[in-house]
Nucleic acid binder design. Structure first.
Length: 114
DNA sequence: CACTTGACGATAG
DNA sequence: GCTATCGCCAAGT
């Protein structure tokens, strides 16, 4: 049975959205939050990813989600893999914990409906 | 139940 | 352009 936790549903939506991020693309917490209708809850989006268990076994490429500045803030939360490595493997160049050409490879969840 | 912390964002100075 | 502060929401202590 599902509890009356409203956040549980919100978290799930965040994971689903992140899973839809195409390879070689990145997005921001605020973009996802706004897409889900929680524009002011960008922090909760990052919180949702953290609730996953800081691992990707759930299938959510959290390394593709960065802050609005294109800066990788959550790399510290990764276990043994560097986000730069994962991103570089996808074709995304990272310099000094920051996404290169972030605006160029930025992906908006709005593209799903568009 | 109150205070603090946190994978953010926007605005002000 | 960079730094400082507030706002927002949820979870942990």
């Amino acid at each position: 049975m599902k509890k009356t936790s409203i956040s549980n549903d919100f978290f799930e939506q965040v994971w689903e959205t992140v899973k839809q991020i195409p390879e070689g693309r990145v997005t921001s917490y605020g973009a996802i939050a706004r897409f889900l209708g929680a524009a002011s809850s960008s922090r909760v989006v990052g919180y949702a990813l953290n609730s996953l268990g800081n691992d990707k076994k759930h299938g959510v490429p959290a390394h593709r989600v960065v802050n609005r500045n294109g800066l990788i803030t959550g790399k510290f939360h990764f276990k043994s893999v560097s986000m730069e490595e994962l991103l570089a493997r996808e074709g995304v160049l990272v310099k000094d914990n920051k996404i290169v050409d972030f605006e160029n490879i930025f992906w908006d969840p709005e593209s799903l409906v568009k």
